[in-house]
């Protein structure tokens, strides 16, 4: 992997090879606005693959797949994701906004092909400020006559978010408590691990460390053992 300051890379090369949407997603995802942008091939490739996955998911979805009664946790995730991306955009946290769209995509992929239209459309709408071309294309594919640029930003239902019982998850690094997270009950080890890694305090202790193992007690605790 080559790594250097982003400014030596010619944007034309990026646009030519991966497209403008990837260049945009990469530049917003790689670092928060107040930090320097570090160039990485992996980062660009990752952005490109992410958009490709969105493209295929939406393209392979047909209205026949629409499910009338959505799973409860999917409804919750949709509302959560919309809230998160909206809040993050207001706060200039573009990197975390994009990463929650990525997580949303991961969950939807597992549901294929039984995905409610509301989820497919929310995914595309949330992506529009970051990757507007692919968003327009998919929006049209979903049967809309109007441009997504003129579409209305999705809203979330605060009542749904408030109704959820949450559990307090203790996050430890080498047995020392570094954070507690409020998460939905029943999350998998992978999901909790991802959430924990987003926490700044936890990040600090995991940085540049080798992960030896993870101890996971559902709804209670996660412990990262590092060396």
């Amino acid at each position: 992997m080559s790594k250097s300051k982003g400014n030596v890379v010619d944007p034309d090369y990026l646009i030519e090879k991966y497209g403008a949407d990837t260049a945009r997603v990469f530049s917003l995802f790689a670092a928060p606005p107040e930090k320097d942008l570090d160039w990485s091939d992996q980062g660009v490739e990752g952005g490109y693959r992410f958009l490709g996955r969105v493209y295929r998911l939406v393209h392979n979805w047909t209205s026949d797949d629409d499910v009338k009664e959505a799973k409860k946790d999917l409804v919750l995730l949709r509302n959560k994701t919309i809230k998160k991306v909206t809040d993050d955009l207001e706060r200039f946290h573009f990197n975390t906004a994009i990463s929650s769209i990525m997580e949303y995509l991961n969950v939807l992929q597992k549901e294929t092909p039984k995905i409610p239209r509301a989820d497919i459309e929310s995914l595309v709408l949330l992506l529009a400020p970051f990757a507007p071309h692919i968003a327009e294309e998919l929006w049209q594919h979903l049967g809309h006559q109007e441009l997504i640029a003129h579409a209305t930003w999705p809203t979330f239902d605060a009542a749904i978010l408030n109704a959820v019982d949450s559990v307090k998850m203790v996050v430890q690094v080498n047995g020392v408590v570094r954070a507690t997270l409020e998460v939905a009950p029943g999350l998998s080890q992978e999901e909790v691990s991802m959430a924990a890694r987003r926490d700044e305090k936890v990040q600090k202790y995991l940085q540049d460390k080798n992960l030896v193992k993870v101890v996971f007690v559902p709804n209670r605790l996660i412990n990262f053992v590092v060396s």
Binding site: G6, D10, L14, A23, R24, S27, L37, F94
Partner: peptide, 15 residues
Amino acid sequence: RIHMGHVRNYSIGDA
């Protein structure tokens, strides 16, 4: 020519 600093600055504004 635009450089990555432009790409990022103006991608933020555009978002």
